[in-house]
Design a protein around this nucleic acid. Structure first.
Lengths: 274, 274
DNA sequence: GTCAACAATAATTTCGAGATTTTTTATATA
DNA sequence: TATATAAAAAATCTCGAAATTATTGTTGAC
């Protein structure tokens, strides 16, 4: 855990402010990732709170967030000099953070030639979606069959929290995107949380994070009106009713529809080099 | 690529000998991983040739090999001082190699508390096998449906090479284990190589490497007689005949049987702490 | 004008020392 | 004896410089 002594000794450039909450033992580091970033005059996202136990973890989270939100573009070369200026970490620290991201397939690396943000493509999106559907439906099936009262409790809670932020999202500005992603993740994870297979969860986690990347691209420039809340509610109802076939069918359609929407956005907005 | 200047400048302790083959551009580094290892008087494995483009890659390969073959035991703490003495790499290099292994789930890490070899268990083996079957059969199905002449060629070649080493394995000593694993991998990969999904291949790769670890444990102390060659041949024949259902059934049984054998070995040989 | 060899520049990779944190040991107190 | 606190030891984590490699630019020969 980071203590104040640690933070005062080396305050990296990326730090916006530091807070100590009395409720727990964590130090919250608010990162202003836009401060040193070469972003255009777009609206600045609010600082993302990160409870980091080490600088490598902080660097990992910071770079991951930039990749997911597009601050670091697909295919972009990740030079250490640039990353050092932008985030304020040392070379070895950055290197280890990038290696973690390679393991998550968000970054590619070639020996002696450095790192790049993993590219995106329509083909990859289609393959990813198809594979995720394959994994997620199996996990959902097992989860519904194994779900107990605690599972139902998690599901009800997650659905409620998601519904609240969905309501805000449709009316207000796009400030809530990080929060929406968090709760969306929470809901989808709750659905399959009673699946007993550790490995199925592990694989699903990899694919889900990948698809989050595409989802955020299509979220910022939404072109197709869509009632996501109704889709989530249908999944929620079918799961609680323990109707395996219906739940899988609805979830499958939900994933497919996401592909359709994202496909349109990518197809319209992607440039050859991007 | 490593040049000789690089090697002569810093010859790590793990180097046994260095060769330059004229046929290609690689420098072959023969690592004597037992030299500095605290192994007992067990029979020394022959040096494993590794074509490394960087020291991180060499360290990654070396440690991975030790974990797969049991030279580093499941659950064992991986202290940097020990690794430095044993392999001869610097701290940052080792750190990055371990981070790669964490991405492959062969090593676990806890912030500020270091790295450990990932544990093994009967539960994990059962879950792993079940998940691998799920993924591999789907990939096999798609592969057979999409396979062209080139795929058949790869399959015939891989099966032939595997058969040769299988014959040697049953008669001779256990010197061929690395080679058997390589060709076994080659054969199983050839079977599904016509599956067009990149992500299915990616996920399968993760699971296959994990199961290799358990397989090697059961190989060194084989207790159940088994005609592996016949099983491989049945898979080979069904795949070439484009009989999807039969191939999947046979492959499924093959995976299940492997679980049964490994389960017996683990159950008999595993100690509480190991 | 094209290509190869060479020099200059820029990037990645590696190492070891110092800073920080965790773990162990010692000491005091109830 | 058990518990809490403090000092000592051992481990991890981080940084920046040095070594190595890749890339770019230049020159000269054909």
């Amino acid at each position: 855990m980071l203590r104040f002594t640690r933070l005062t000794a080396q305050i990296p450039a990326f730090l916006a402010r530091v807070e100590k909450h009395s409720e727990d033992d964590w130090i919250w580091i608010f990162m202003d990732t836009n401060a040193a970033a070469n972003v255009t005059a777009a609206a600045l996202a609010p600082p993302k709170p990160v409870a980091a136990r080490s600088l490598v973890e902080a660097a990992h989270e910071a770079i991951r967030h930039e990749i997911l939100t597009g601050g670091l573009a697909p295919g972009e070369k990740l030079r250490f000099e640039m990353l050092r200026k932008r985030f304020g970490f040392g070379a070895s620290t950055l290197r280890e953070a990038l290696t973690r991201l390679v393991g998550e397939a968000l970054v590619t690396s070639e020996e002696q030639k450095g790192f790049r943000v993993a590219p995106v493509s329509l083909e990859d999106l289609a393959d990813l979606t198809r594979t995720r559907k394959f994994i997620e439906l199996e996990a959902l099936r097992e989860s519904i069959l194994n779900g107990d009262d605690a599972w139902e409790g998690r599901l009800v809670s997650a659905f409620h929290r998601l519904s609240k932020v969905e309501a805000k999202l449709s009316s207000g500005p796009e400030l809530q995107q990080d929060e929406f992603e968090r709760r969306n993740n929470e809901f989808h994870h709750a659905l399959i949380s009673a699946c007993p297979s550790r490995w199925l969860h592990h694989l699903h986690g990899i694919l889900y994070q990948q698809s989050e990347r595409y989802r955020r691209i299509s979220l910022v420039n939404r072109v197709v009106p869509r009632d996501v809340h109704a889709e989530h509610k249908a999944m929620f109802d079918a799961a609680l009713a323990r109707n395996v076939e219906l739940a899988c069918q609805v979830a499958g359609e939900h994933i497919e529809r996401t592909l359709a929407v994202m496909g349109k956005v990518l197809n319209a907005g992607m440039r050859p080099g991007g």
